[in-house]
Nucleic acid binder design. Structure first.
Lengths: 103, 103
DNA sequence: ACAAAATGATGCATTAACGTATCTTTTCTT
DNA sequence: AAGAAAAGATACGTTAATGCATCATTTTGT
């Protein structure tokens, strides 16, 4: 409800972009992820820090996978994702800077 | 408290492996991530679904980054992470199958 | 073998994610 | 322009993540 971290907003933007790329409504994604629309809305808006399981379910509804990448490999992974020749959906990747411990 | 999904246990295993590779104690990682040791312990054991912000903080304490990768790109990213010639720490990557909507 | 550190584990209080309901505002479609 | 659908937003109750304290067990180091 009162999350609002940089990372959350970045994730939210990615979710929204990906969802629109798939022409899905918030309700459809929420259903697929097993949560309600108001909750999905908060997550997409970056105003709620979803549980790990919830984020994974949302990601999969959008054909994304949550991964933990060694920081040293992030540039390489980014480069790999940049020239998305085109399979079906839109590109994606997340995370970067932040700071404040919790919340 | 009673999470226990496949994905959570997989993440937990990765966190533990990475932490040991960095020779850090649970307490050190918990401190860096801004949570308590009992909580970090639960997360590492896969018995608790951390909030997104918490997972990000833990990941960064372990020099990892949370990323959402298009499923179509996962094999390529995996391949990129496999032959880690030697940068600094241990390997890493996560996620796979699961199912049950929430929790 | 011993001590110390690290990890496993539990109980209780607090906080925020999540569900349900309802409303308004914006964006599509015709 | 009118109507419908989607998205934005808020309130309140429930549930689980988190903090704090404290135990037992395992591992590490000397």
């Amino acid at each position: 409800m009162r999350a609002r971290s940089d990372a959350l907003m970045e994730i939210g933007r990615l979710l929204k972009t990906t969802r629109k790329g798939l022409s899905l409504t918030q309700e459809q994604v929420a259903d697929m992820a097993g949560i309600t629309r108001p909750r999905y809305r908060d997550i997409e808006a970056g105003s709620s820090a979803a549980r790990t399981t919830t984020l994974i379910n949302i990601a999969r509804a959008l054909r994304l996978e949550l991964m933990l990448i060694p920081q040293a490999m992030v540039p390489a992974v980014d480069a790999l994702l940049q020239p998305h020749d085109g399979d079906d959906d839109l590109p994606a990747f997340v995370a970067s800077p932040d700071g404040g411990a919790n919340a």
